[in-house]
């Protein structure tokens, strides 16, 4: 069996230090069933060892290889070349937007990680039982239901921040991943988290472009989560308006400090 070969031109964004950015072109022979990241790695391995980019796991778990492919945000390790270009076509590879470029395709995602920590995003999902349907569980001699835990869907790849038009013009906006993280953690009884998302830089800044949901490689649906957070915040504020604020929550907050 012979795999068909395509010739694809990789136009790769290059930027080192304070020099002006430019694009380098590399013509590669690839299989259409390889992934975009495979091509980028081959450029690094055989053409230009100075190319900087981030990657690790190759199976959409680490969230390191987010880039823009022909303008659209993609997790390059699971993006088939077949799906984004054709034989003789071009792949324009650029770093994610809305993060400072460190070098070439590598961006500094520090602020995203800081904010994910602020909203107490956990790599292991708290509603584990609900999240894994019985039929999706691995077969075999395993324990009780409580033993099933799963990883959180969000892999902190930053693609949604790169795709969001509001994050693009307003870096103060917490951003889709962070608000989705707050939603997954849950704001019930968490005064600090409620204050964080119910602010100028929180859920009210979203203007429903839903690009976050469109580019998310992990089906977190940040757009839906932001909308659901709004519903929760409005509900909470109305409850307090009519019943007065709940002193119990404030007490526990003070005690935990």
């Amino acid at each position: 069996m012979s795999t068909p070969k395509w010739v694809v031109t990789f136009q790769i964004y290059r930027k080192k230090g304070n020099a002006d950015p430019h694009f380098d072109e590399f013509k590669l022979e690839v299989s259409p069933d390889e992934y975009v990241l495979d091509g980028i790695e081959r450029v690094w391995a055989f053409h230009d060892r100075s190319l900087a980019f981030r990657h690790a796991c190759h199976h959409s778990t680490c969230g390191a290889c987010g880039m823009r492919v022909n303008g659209a945000e993609k997790l390059t390790c699971i993006t088939l070349i077949r799906d984004v270009t054709q034989d003789g076509g071009v792949l324009r590879i650029e770093p994610m937007r809305n993060f400072p470029v460190v070098s070439d395709l590598a961006v500094d995602m520090g602020i995203l990680y800081t904010r994910m920590e602020m909203v107490e995003h956990q790599p292991v999902n708290s509603d584990a039982k609900e999240a894994i349907q019985p039929e999706a569980r691995p077969a075999g001699p395993v324990g009780e239901e409580e033993d099933y835990i799963r990883l959180s869907d969000c892999i902190e790849c930053g693609l949604c921040i790169s795709a969001c038009p509001i994050s693009g013009s307003s870096p103060e906006y917490l951003g889709p991943a962070v608000l989705a993280g707050a939603h997954q953690h849950g704001i019930k009884g968490n005064e600090q988290l409620l204050k964080l998302v119910d602010s100028e830089d929180g859920v009210w800044r979203c203007h429903s472009a839903f690009e976050c949901t469109a580019v998310c490689p992990s089906f977190v649906e940040p757009g839906w989560r932001i909308m659901d957070l709004r519903k929760q915040v409005i509900g909470e504020r109305f409850k307090r308006l009519f019943r007065g604020s709940s002193p119990k929550i404030i007490d526990t907050m003070e005690a935990s400090k």
Binding site: I111, M118, E172, K195, S199, E200, W204, I234, R237
Partner: peptide
């Protein structure tokens, strides 16, 4: 200040 939230447009203004 880069990380902390600002108050101002909260629920009621949006509502």
């Amino acid at each position: 200040s880069r990380y902390g939230p600002k108050t101002g447009e909260s629920t009621w203004l949006w509502f």
